[in-house]
Design a protein around this nucleic acid. Structure first.
Length: 948
RNA sequence: GGGCGCUUAGCUCAGUUGGAAGAGCGUCUGGUUUGCAACCAGAAGGCCGGGGGUUCAAAUCCCCCAGCGUCCA
């Protein structure tokens, strides 16, 4: 079964009729009798270019967006909707996506699953979003953006609980009234297209709202979830109705602005100052002068109309696209050559994309993101690099920081969510430095990679292009440009290469994804009720009493040595979570005791892994390994304190990227754009220890999620996205506030002391702090003392003098090694200059066959000494009993000696005497064996062959 | 999270099938020059990132670790 028609009174009341689209076959509603297409087809041109469909908005740029946003939100707040503040673009509350991609993303997964109440109901919001999937089309299509605001009204109905705010009828009515009354759009211009929506395991009926050939909004009525027995089938999956009915709408703020401005592209409507500025700086205005006969205005307006009906998506081959454009333009009476076309559209695409990318970048960094080479940080770096590349293509000599300053002031009103202006500019300056460094390195790499390629070559081998892109960050067309500068003047990029490379990446990603799937073995705890956590009541209790609910065999499921899994009705044992390791200790029955080796949480059930079974009686007494627990608490609370210190000292971009607490140490990963030095660590360490003495008590509280978000914001979720509705919060005065389910001290002073041992890099943009606290800090200090003591004993100096002594010894060692080398070669010279028994003259060639004491190194020196002098042609055969026997043969190159003798042949014929092999070049061969006693025979064989 | 690449002299980097550690710049000494620049001659400067393995032999091949870079999700 598919979905029934969307037949609403609001359509009939406004004179709309249901038709089927001639092109797409989709059903749609229109009040234009002549209309045969749904509006969003290759036959529907944009009708608003030069003829705005939305009236009363004369502003442009930021002012236009602000006015449009207020008009939208005002309509809904006047009609009982609560306006909520937008969420960050960095989706910290989710672990499945990095960026906020839609307004509904604010409420996933917990509100949409029904676990958590929405912040308001119904609500209206204008949510900044970032989508990077179509990043290649931005600037080229006239309408694609990586960052946009999704205006929305959301409703969360629970019909079973009697909560029904409104559904399709009222939703569409709101939409229709707003479009026609608030925005003055002619009803005849609007079509409502029925097109069911599904995604992420949910589905529902949906209506696309098309105005003037442009999709202005989508209204989704999500009331189904994926289920194998579902009655409704959509795109191959089956769905059934669910208890929650959600209205998910999305109105494109920027598209409203565009429809109100009627500019050739969306970019001119929302970033007019930047577009003008870039045109001026890049000298684009002069382009038209190059071809006086060309009507640039006419060309651009025809192009923007064409853009509306041509599906310019990422991955479309550039050259093919140009040809289609030229043909279509010619049909419309605009004659333009391919050269003219590219010289206009290529810079224009960059001019349009730069403000869009800057907007996304400022939003991301403004939320505290730190650029990196992995995860979300990479997305920021990619955008920064694209901007820099486009800037260079436009040949604008403006630093990235200046571009950002302009964007910040002109298009963002100087407002950043979290990051400071200085912080943003520092980060971008670093990104530009990295980019320049990459280009410099890349030029070198190209020189080396292309060394074997003749200068007349017309193509660079695919393998080189792939390597340079994937490993060195140089896109194929950049490689071509750099190669031409480096002297390969005729190389070009094969048509379609970029598409091939994208395909290759997609294939690789797919392979990696399939290779990665595979589930782990887990314990089955279904049927047990949630375990009551006693550790929150007081973190200082060492013993407790509880009832055994179950004890099952768990061989291989827990840590090494664990044989059983015990489930209790309540426990003091903290299960591993939030980076804190699970508690250990002992469970005691009347006469049976088992050790708890680890504690884990599976769902709401806490599992104790033990080294033996319990005897079956219900009551047990639990004894915590309190010393261990205390140490884990020391480290955990210390990590919070150090994290707070880092944020205060380094900036608002400091976010916890991970943590791990063990008995030995605590580990805290923080996001930062620089490597940390010892001075940074010392400052944090000082501040952390001040907190220990200044803050008398920590505050622990529990809030529902909605209140937690509202009171503390999303910085609360340093430890990752929380799962349930109820959030435990640890507040250490104003120093650090975050959601954390771990066990923490009531008084920071109980930790004793905190040391930041060192920092290391996890990835670019993430710094790992190694922390010891409490007893562990003491143990660490002792072990360091021990290292110093042992080392200074070796040198026979006092610990304070250790660095100086080590430096002196290292220096002397180097000097002496040098001296030994000199002396060795001197000895060789002395031994060889005199000649002696080992030397014979054979028809003008000095032949030396001798056994020496020494390793390969000194043999080499000796052989060098014997055979490097061209004035004295020499064949030298050296043998040593070192390490199973070594043989080395050399002849003086380019002399009588090298004409007459072949070192390799000679070596091969005698090396069998020492039971080994060898090889080399005709003028130099070396080998070895495992039978040193045969060395004499080997040398004799050599003499024999040489006729001595 | 996955893939790929890099780490060699103070700096920028070469280093072919495993077989004698290199170039350019910089430094120092001497020459030339009124002096400087330039030039000429010479020298110093290397745990070839660390650890293990294979091999008669490893900068080179394999494994682990560290640092750095890069692409994709």
């Amino acid at each position: 079964m598919s979905l029934p028609p969307i037949d609403l009174a609001v359509f009939h009341d406004n004179g709309y009729v249901r038709k089927q689209c001639r092109v797409t076959s989709l059903w749609f509603w229109t009040c234009d009798e002549a209309r045969e297409t749904c509006g969003d087809t290759p036959e529907d041109e944009y009708t608003f270019i030069g003829a705005p469909l939305i009236e009363g908005f004369d502003q442009r740029g930021k002012a236009l967006k602000d006015a449009m946003r207020e008009a939208f939100l005002g309509y809904f707040t006047d009609r009982e909707h609560t306006r909520i503040d937008p969420y960050p673009v960095l989706a910290r509350w989710r672990d499945d996506i990095h960026l906020t991609i839609a307004s509904i993303a604010d409420f996933q997964p917990h509100v949409t699953s029904g676990a958590v109440q929405p912040p308001a109901n119904p609500l209206a919001v204008s949510q900044p979003c970032i989508r990077l999937t179509d990043v290649d089309a931005v600037g080229r299509s006239g309408r694609h953006l990586t960052t946009f605001e999704m205006m929305a009204h959301h409703v969360f109905n629970r019909p079973d609980d009697g909560l029904e705010i409104y559904w399709m009828e009222e939703c569409v009515e709101h939409c229709h009234r707003m479009l026609t009354e608030t925005f003055g759009i002619q009803a005849s211009e609007i079509t409502y297209v029925e097109n069911p929506w599904c995604g992420g395991g949910n589905a529902g009926a949906a209506v696309e709202v098309i105005v003037g050939g442009l999709e202005l909004a989508t209204l989704v009525f999500m009331d189904m979830e994926e289920h194998p027995d579902g009655e409704v089938e959509l795109k191959g999956d089956r769905y059934r109705t669910m208890p929650l009915q959600i209205i998910d709408t999305g109105y494109g703020l920027e598209r409203f602005c565009w429809a109100a401005a009627g500019t050739p592209t969306i970019y001119e409507a929302i970033y007019p100052e930047t577009v003008a500025w870039l045109k001026q700086r890049s000298g684009f205005d002069n382009v038209a002068n190059r071809w006086p006969s060309l009507d640039l205005d006419r060309l651009l307006s025809e192009m923007s109309r064409l853009n509306g009906i041509m599906n310019i998506e990422a991955g479309v081959d550039g050259e093919k696209l140009v040809n289609i454009f030229l043909k279509r333009l010619a049909e419309r009476g605009v004659e333009v050559s391919a050269e003219q076309f590219s010289s206009i559209t290529e810079p224009l695409a960059n001019i349009y994309a730069i403000p869009d990318h800057l907007h996304a970048l400022c939003n991301m960094l403004g939320d505290g993101l730190v650029p990196s080479n992995a995860k979300a940080g990479y997305l920021a770096r990619m955008l920064a690099r694209r901007v820099l590349r486009m800037r260079d293509e436009l040949d604008i000599q403006v630093p990235l920081t200046e571009l950002a300053t302009h964007h910040l002031d002109v298009n963002l009103g100087g407002q950043l969510n979290k990051q400071t202006r200085d912080g943003l500019l520092t980060i971008l300056a670093l990104e530009e430095e990295r980019y320049i460094e990459m280009l410099r390195k890349g030029t070198n790499v190209i020189q080396t990679q292309l060394k074997s390629l003749p200068k007349e070559a017309t193509e660079i081998p695919d393998g080189h292009l792939f390597t340079m892109n994937d490993s060195h960050g140089l896109a194929p067309d950049m490689v071509i440009t750099l190669a031409r500068h480096a002297g390969w003047n005729s190389v070009t990029l094969r048509t379609g290469f970029s598409a091939e490379m994208a395909e290759r990446h997609a294939r690789m990603a797919k392979e990696a994804a399939t290779a990665n799937s595979g589930g782990g073995h887990v314990l089955d705890v279904a049927g047990y009720p949630a375990t009551t956590p006693l550790y929150y009541e007081s973190v200082y209790l060492p013993t407790f009493e509880a009832n055994v609910l179950g004890c099952q065999s768990a061989e291989g499921l827990g840590p090494e040595g664990a044989t059983h899994a015990v489930v209790l009705d309540a426990t003091l044992f903290y299960p591993e979570g939030g980076g804190q390791e699970g508690d250990r200790g002992r469970l005691q029955q009347n006469n049976v005791g088992v050790d708890v080796l680890d504690t884990q949480k599976i769902g709401d059930v806490i599992v104790h892994f033990t080294n033996g079974p319990l005897d079956g009686s219900p009551n047990i007494e639990g004894h915590l390994d309190w010393k261990r627990r205390k140490q884990l608490m020391d480290h955990h609370t210390a990590v919070h304190i150090v994290g707070g210190a880092a944020r205060r000292l380094l900036g608002p971009h400091i976010f916890q990227a991970g943590s791990h607490l063990t008995v030995e140490s605590g580990r805290l990963d923080i996001t930062h754009y620089h490597r940390l030095n010892r001075a940074d660590l010392d400052a944090m360490e000082d501040m952390a220890n001040e907190v220990l003495s200044d803050v008398r008590a920590t505050e622990k509280s529990e809030l529902n999620r909605r209140d937690a978000d509202m009171v503390h914001g999303f910085d609360l979720y340093q430890g990752g996205a929380p799962k349930g509705d109820s959030i435990r919060i640890l507040k250490i005065a104003e120093h650090d506030i975050q959601a954390c389910g771990g066990t923490h001290h009531d008084e920071p002073g109980q930790i004793g002391s905190i040391r930041i041992v060192r920092s290391s890099a996890v990835q670019d943009g993430v710094e790992r702090l190694h922390i010891v606290a409490g007893e562990a800090a003491l143990a660490y200090a002792r072990s360091q003392d021990e290292l110093v003591r042992l080392s200074s004993e070796v040198f026979g100096v006092h610990g304070d003098d250790l660095p100086k002594a080590a430096a002196r010894f290292f220096k002397e060692w180097k000097e002496q090694r040098k001296l030994i080398e000199h002396l060795e070669s001197e000895i060789v010279r002395l031994r060889t200059s005199g000649g002696g028994d080992a030397t014979t003259d054979v028809d003008g060639v000095r032949v030396v066959v001798m056994e020496i004491d020494g390793d390969l190194k000194s043999m080499t020196t000796m052989l060098k000494e014997l055979t490097l002098d061209a004035a004295q042609p020499t064949l030298a055969v050296l043998g040593s009993k070192d390490g199973g026997g070594k043989l080395m043969i050399g002849v003086t190159e380019n002399t009588l000696a090298s004409e007459r003798y072949n070192a390799v042949d000679l070596l091969r014929s005698i090396s069998s005497h020492i039971r080994g092999g060898g090889g080399g070049r005709p003028t130099f061969a070396q080998g070895g064996g495992s039978y040193a006693e045969g060395l004499g025979d080997a040398l004799d064989a050599a003499r024999e062959q040489l006729g001595l």
